[in-house]
Design a protein around this nucleic acid. Sequence first.
RNA 1: GCCGGGAUGGCGGAACUGGUAGACGCGCCAGACUCAAAAUCUGGUAUCCGUAAGGAUGUGGGGGUUCGAUUCCCCCUCCCGGUACCA
Length: 869
Amino acid sequence: MRQELKRELLTERYEPARIEPVVQDHWRDQQTFKVVEDLSKEKFYCLCMFPYPSGRLHMGHVRNYTIGDVIARYQRMQGKNVMQPMGWDAFGMPAENAAIENNVPPAKWTRDNIAYMRGQLQRLGFAYDWDRELATCNPDYYRWEQWFFTQLYEKGMIYRATAVVNWDPVDQTVLANEQVIDGCGWRSGAPVERREIPQWFLRITAYADELLEELDRMDEWPEAVKTMQRNWIGRSQGLLIRFGLSDGSGNLEVFTTRPDTLMGATYMAVAPEHPLAVAAAGRDAQVAELLEACKRQSTSEAILETMEKRGLPLGITVDHPLTGAPLPVWVANFVLMGYGTGAVMSVPAHDDRDFEFAQRNGLPIRQVVKPLDGRAIDITHEAYTEHGLLVNSGEFDGLDFTQAFDAIATRLEGQGRAERRTQYRLRDWLVSRQRYWGCPIPVLYDAEGNVVPETPERLPVVLPEDVAWEGVNSPLRSMPAFTQATLPDGRPGRRETDTFDTFFESSWYFTRFACADSTTGMVDARADYWMPVDIYIGGIEHAVLHLLYARFFHKAMRDAGLVKSDEPFKRLLTQGMVCKETYFRDGDNGRKQYFNPAQVDVELDAKGRAVTARAKADGLPVTIGAVEKMSKSKNNGVDPQALIDKYGADTVRLYTMFAAPPDQSLEWSDSAVEGQFRFLKSLWRQVTEHAAMGVPAEAGSGSDELKTVRRHIHETIVKVSDDVSRRYKFNTAIAAVMELLNHLSRMSVDTAAAHAVRQEGLTTVVLLLAPIVPHITAVLWQALGHTDELSAAAWPTADSAALTRDEVEMVVQVNGRKRAVVRVPAQADKATCEAIALADDNVQRFVVGRETRKIIIVPGKLVNVVVAE
RNA sequence: GCCGGGAUGGCGGAACUGGUAGACGCGCCAGACUCAAAAUCUGGUAUCCGUAAGGAUGUGGGGGUUCGAUUCCCCCUCCCGGUACCA
């Protein structure tokens, strides 16, 4: 039997610490949010990006999960069968860092964090079906991605190739880009080197066209995310051209998307690892020195693209395929061997980077394109990169981009010097990581080093969890019990010690939530009921990598017959960052020592701006840095736990929803939380005082004042419903409810009818706030005399009869400047509106004595009288 | 560098399709209650001129389109996210 919430919770004072645990226990005991497949109801799968168990929840989590919970609870009130699961993205580097620093095994550190953070999520009252919880570090999860890897391997979707990594020569370990600071290892401080090692790749490029074209049909995704994914995939049509080396020793291949500018090519540039550069280094000490310097270059695109562009001539030339003129070949540090052919044709007049390089090195700049509109350009000042008409190109002069592309491509193809190509910026997915705390890649090597994939029946390859850490390297390599293995055919072999990129786990967990307990397969038929995810909510920082990998993985699973949908996420809601000022001091070896906001006192000036900050520990100043995403590395996270302890979960939820719309970045300030607590206290007081007068028997109406109150109630229902369901603007929804409650608190309740209208108003307020502040509303719902559970109540609908108005306000402008506000009958025609507007005294002041040129009327809103100045 | 986003009072933000700029909240000021304080309640609060009525200015900067621009177009500045091994 259903158990009712206890009446004694209705104390005079609002005490969240008392009521919230009772309400949460009630949900748990009643299994309120447990959900099973039910074909009689419309399903709704509401998902937030699962957290990395870093230790404690941060504000970004609270914001993300509150948005999801509001949507899930709203959809539930719409009568849908709502699934909202939660799990843990449990593999990753921080667990290894904790192991190195505190000598605690990554598995224990991770599971302790999960236990603590699960408690925090429960304390926030999120409507999760905890029976579906999963952690990616558990073998019953990762065994299935190992299985899927073996399937992809058989299909030829996986291959082994070399790739460049950051190598720390002192710690003898591979570093993540984040662990390289100013070119040096973050622990050793030693200059980092580039090193090529064999690694595993997934052929995401085989899906490039589908990933790109499907975006056009994903109309419930934000345009910004789709644009970023399109640009990331970067499909371009171009020409692969072979320039003959002048000494006849072979060809230099380049890819260009601008064959129309071929006549403007004045030199060639190759990567430092290019065979031509390496050969030249043997003859030229300066080139050798440059190549040596390039070996210490970063692997990060952001750093490579902003560093100083350097290069040297290699002393060789190629022949221009149209003119036969010799073009010098240079080596340049910004040309990447892993991109295309490792060589580019340089057209300084029409490419910014080529222009900069040519200017710096005194190379010729030759204009071959002019603007379509005939406007003059100065090619000695900056490159002209737009499409235009050809000049200085002999027989091709006067052609536009498309014509020139075609003519030059056809000519070179005829000479056997070129082929048209479609190229992608997208590269195959490098999934190998030289780390311990990850899912073992299920392959072995025989005595000759040949690859032998694991067979499904031998899975999972279990990651040993009881490990001792010495130094900073993965302990797997020095564990014979792990590395020495028998191959499926019985021969002795060696096990791969690399683990998967953690994006591998996060690329399919959402499908597993549909059938998290399945022991018979990666997913089962229940996935067909729940997938795709109806709304996926998470940080905008995942716009490309995670969301592109997940889309790809889902399509690969579809092609393996595991799921039916083409796309995993029907709608995407990208949450803005939760940001906060950073505080730091410059420490030893030039690295910044960051201070948490809780460790710092900030002094404000009269305008409320931060002027100085001091560390609480020593009272000495710290530098106030930029406002950045709350992160572990910048130590600028605000701990939500203190706020939950002080104000309760409802206030924290209310504040994070009120402070900014979900897709905007939120600059954290603790000061405004108090106001949200006040609002809940006031709500509590008004409802309990009202309830003390008894529950009215029937609906009320009558006087004009009551009609106005009822209209406000029903206008608020319309407004909040739209804000919550269509606009996802919870801040304005809350503001509208605040206005309504203010109105209700000021109405005079001297009749039974007024009492009944207030009952209607307060009931509406409680229902509209239920998804946002579920604890206080659950208790107040009963106080208002309802015997059913609020968690089973339906979302309110507006009474159209209550919405009608007799009069509307119209703004009157003269020449676009507001001069008056007048009241007109709601049904007034244009002539009436015009007459009432012109009758206004202040309007007359600006109209009289001037010629009226026209009058613009926007019905129900505005009259603009245009007069001669 | 490149791709994407942003900038509105002292602060967070609102203005949804080109139509009243500043809703709602914080902070601050004044008042009520109190021996006092806290809590609570009431009123005020973009800037400048004005007792007021009202007027002028004002949405990062510069230009444009329009009867009318925070909103559309062009140029610029600064900030944030991503940039393939942080997740």
